[in-house]
């Protein structure tokens, strides 16, 4: 099923901003909030893993139901998970489409990887505290 991905600040994400390798940050930055009816259609339970894909790539997150979102819209806190599937195109403005990327969501058995692993996929190497 296809959705419009919106990203933005959440207070939880903000409070983990200096601890981005913590489980808390991972949990918040990889939480995909969705309309409950959409979740029902995709046969998703609260907290199950999903794979979100766009032409820029795909990433595993967890789905959470959120009454206030309209159908067809999903919300993820800003951060490395959402950015894994947002394209770098800026249309000459310097600003990617952080708030209006079209994505595909399906259920998955794959795990949510830690932030450091995401960066390893980009060619980096994890630093463990």
């Amino acid at each position: 099923m296809n959705f419009v991905l919106n990203t933005g600040r959440t207070i939880k994400q903000g409070s983990y901003v200096e601890r981005k390798n913590s489980d808390g940050y991972r949990d918040e930055a990889s939480a995909c909030r969705m309309n409950p009816v959409d979740m029902m259609e995709l046969d998703l339970e609260d907290g199950v893993n999903i794979k979100m894909s766009s032409p820029a790539g795909s990433v595993v997150m967890k789905a959470f139901s959120c009454q206030s979102l309209k159908r067809g819209e999903v919300f993820v806190s800003l951060g490395p998970y959402a950015n894994h599937i947002i394209d770098g195109e800026t249309h000459g403005t310097g600003m990617p489409d952080f708030k209006t990327t079209m994505v595909h969501i399906e259920s998955t058995d794959e795990d949510v990887v830690p932030v450091s692993r995401l960066m390893e996929e980009c060619g980096g190497w994890p630093y463990e505290d």
């Binding site: 981005k20 820029a56 950015n83 770098g88 990617p96 960066m119 980009c122 060619g123 980096g124």
Partner: peptide, 17 residues
């Protein structure tokens, strides 16, 4: 700042290179 967290993957790849 933290571009790793806030830039699209394409950009992170180049930062790693």
């Amino acid at each position: 700042s933290d571009p790793g967290a806030h830039f699209p993957k394409q950009c992170c790849r180049h930062l790693a290179e």
